Simulated scan of single mutants.
Amino acid sequence: MIRSLWTAASGMQAQQLNIDNIANNLANVNTAGFKKSRVNFQDLMYETIKEAGTPNAQGSISPNGIEIGNGVRPASVQRLFTQGNFQQTGNPLDLVIEGDGFFQIQLPDGSTAYTRDGSFKQDGDGRIVTSDGYPLFPEIYIPEDAVGININADGTVSVMLAGEEEPQEIGQLELARFANPAGLSSSGRNLFKATVASGAPIIGNPGMEGFGTIAQGYLEMSNVQVVEEMVNMITAQRAYEINSKTIQASEEMLRTVSNLKR
């Protein structure tokens, strides 16, 4: 009886975490480059009351045993790196990666972060930076007299200068990819950091084998599907309610036992 109380409580805690994750997915439905997450669960240890294959009194073997589970626990929150929809913006510094890869971002402490958010800006020095002012790596500077910027599918960055007839190449975009992108650590601000689980970054130019290509004037939006998340929310809510009913039923059974009289 007591076991059922704790088992149902573990189910309620698991579904609360599930709802928290769904809420974060829905909150970022319009966040460029956002990748949704999914909670993976595992069942807990079992109490073996009778092992399968135990001989019975008649000398035959019991085909089934008796194992009682103790609930559920969250095993992981997995980031899903499926491609999001593309939105055309016409902004020359809005970039999208068609395929695998991450933009590299230089952080103030000198470390490198990675992002799928290609909504870049130009700072006062002409550098291409994120919305927080973190520069793209390798750094690319746009000249003050540039009247147009073009970024090819292979990441070549060129500008048209005032008074010139031919574009001038000013830099080359490089992408990073990982053996296990789901192992990246989320640090907020649409940025990820490499971990032991993700593996070391593999650097290459867009369009190389294994790397996606660049499309200028587009943004990759969140890969969150609102209808899917709403269905997941309903499922989690009902599971939470069912576990709460189990606690109520267990409590009523305990009350019945406590009210027994000779």
Score class of each variant (00 low, 15 high):
Asp117Arg: 00
Ile2Asp: 05
Asp154Asn: 13
Ile61Asn: 01
Gln168Ile: 14
Glu174Tyr: 09
Glu209Ala: 11
Lys35Glu: 01
Gly133Val: 10
Asp94Glu: 10
Gln83Cys: 03
Ser187His: 09
Ala162Ile: 04
Lys35Ala: 08
Arg73Ile: 15
Ala249Pro: 03
Gln78Asp: 15
Leu26Ala: 05
Ala75Gly: 05
Ile22Gly: 06
Thr7Glu: 02
Thr156His: 03
Met12Arg: 04
Ile22Cys: 13
Leu80Phe: 00
Val226Tyr: 12
Ile128Met: 02
Pro55Thr: 01
Glu174Asp: 14
Asp94Lys: 09
Glu241Arg: 07
Ser4Asn: 06
Val226Ser: 04
Gly65Thr: 12
Thr130Leu: 00
Gly188Ile: 00
Tyr240Phe: 12
Asp94Ala: 01
Ile19Pro: 14
Thr246Cys: 06
Gly124Met: 00
Leu219His: 09
Arg3Asn: 13
Gly71Leu: 12
Gln168Phe: 11
Ala162Arg: 15
Asp145His: 07
Gln248Arg: 03
Asn150Thr: 10
Arg79Asp: 04
Asn223Arg: 04
Glu98Leu: 08
Ile61Ser: 09
Pro74Tyr: 07
Gln122Ile: 13
Asn232Leu: 11
Gly163Trp: 02
Gly69Asn: 09
Asp132Gln: 15
Glu139Lys: 08
Gly217Arg: 02
Ser119Asp: 02
Ser60His: 11
Val231Glu: 12
Glu220His: 00
